[in-house]
Simulated scan of single mutants.
Amino acid sequence: MNSKLKEFNVVGIGASAGGLKALQNLFRYIPDDTGMSFIIVQHLSPDFKSLMPELLSKFTNMTIHTAKDKLPIKPNCIYLNQRNKNLHIKGSKIYLLEKGPKNNLNLPIDIFFHTLGEEFKEKSIAIILSGTGSDGSRGITTVKEKGGITIAQNPEEAEFDGMPNAAINTNAVDYIKSTQQIAKILTSKNIELKILNALDLNTQKLETEFKGILVEIYKHCGVDFREYKKNTIIRRMEKRMGINNINNIKSYSEFVKKTTKKKKHSEMIF
């Protein structure tokens, strides 16, 4: 993937029934200059023209595009799927795919999320909003596995909780929040912490704290993460720090020591 792509996040949003209200509430609180790109995939009837560009433009000043084949992905823009095409990403562009026969099950959100995770890896963010069924629940696991961030709308807020609950049941969701809280997460400085990147320079103080956390977890559960790839552990640890609103490794070390008796090792890092 082009190195320039790594300079900004791509946020994939899956929505179905009740999704319009959720999207409007979400973009009401997202600034126009986050530096992120937003790609929305909805369940659309092939027989009716979508009014989403007009309806969403009331809540954001970002440029809104209806996706076209080989359309470049740019920051501070919103892209919408077409009603009669599936959407996926390859490199830095959006590609359109023909849908299968009308009677076949079509999962456009899963299709898109799979390619989002594969292409943008740790720069990918997958969000599941209101909808029925389970579309998106498979695709978010790819985003999670590739080091991206996964978010589900709080089912208590969603008009239809099927899709959020299906995503949550995968145990691959990092955040379960209201649309307003999701917007806050996306604009948080902790969305991608960089504090641990200094470990690559072998800064002694950070290195000591880092190893101390791994030793504490080994004592608690018997799994030695010191044998794992360091960069993988760093990315997972950064994500857990962000989820717990911790912005330095010393505070995270103290947090781990306090919670080892209450949580499994997978909850602390992965």
Rank of each mutant, 00 (worst) to 15 (best):
N2R: 14
F8R: 09
F8M: 04
V11C: 02
V11S: 02
G12R: 10
G14N: 12
G14R: 07
G18F: 05
G19N: 03
G19E: 01
K21T: 12
A22H: 13
Q24F: 09
Q24I: 02
R28G: 00
P31N: 01
P31C: 01
D33H: 13
M36N: 14
S37E: 01
I39N: 06
I40K: 03
I40H: 02
K49C: 02
L51Q: 09
L51P: 00
M52C: 03
P53D: 07
S57Q: 15
K58F: 11
M62F: 10
M62V: 08
M62P: 09
T63F: 08
T63M: 06
K70E: 13
L71Y: 04
P72K: 04
P75C: 04
I78R: 00
Y79D: 06
L80T: 04
L80P: 13
N81G: 02
Q82V: 06
L87Y: 07
L87G: 07
I89E: 01
I89H: 10
K90F: 14
I94R: 05
E98N: 15
P101K: 06
K102R: 11
N104W: 05
N104I: 06
N106W: 00
I109Q: 05
D110H: 03
F112M: 09
H114L: 08
H114T: 11
T115W: 00
L116K: 09
E119V: 12
S124K: 06
S124G: 09
I125E: 03
I128D: 07
T132Q: 14
S134W: 01
G136E: 02
R138Y: 14
E145C: 00
G147V: 00
G148R: 11
I149H: 08
Q153H: 07
Q153L: 04
E156N: 14
E156Q: 13
E157T: 01
E157R: 11
A158P: 07
E159Q: 07
F160Y: 15
D161H: 10
M163R: 09
M163C: 08
A166G: 11
A167T: 03
T170D: 05
A172Y: 02
D174L: 01
Y175I: 07
S178P: 06
S178Q: 02
Q180D: 12
Q181M: 05
K184Q: 14
K184A: 11
I185E: 13
T187S: 12
T187I: 02
S188V: 01
N190G: 01
K194P: 00
L199Q: 03
D200S: 12
L201A: 13
N202D: 13
N202C: 03
N202M: 10
T203R: 03
L206Y: 12
T208I: 15
F210D: 06
G212T: 09
G212Q: 13
G212D: 15
I213G: 03
L214K: 07
V215R: 08
V223Q: 13
K229H: 13
K230T: 14
K230M: 15
T232V: 04
M237Y: 12
K239Y: 10
K239L: 13
N244K: 13
N247S: 15
N248V: 09
I249D: 12
S253W: 00
S253N: 06
S253Q: 03
E254G: 04
F255R: 10
F255W: 14
V256T: 04
K257L: 05
K258E: 15
K264M: 14
S266V: 11
E267K: 14
E267W: 03
E267M: 05
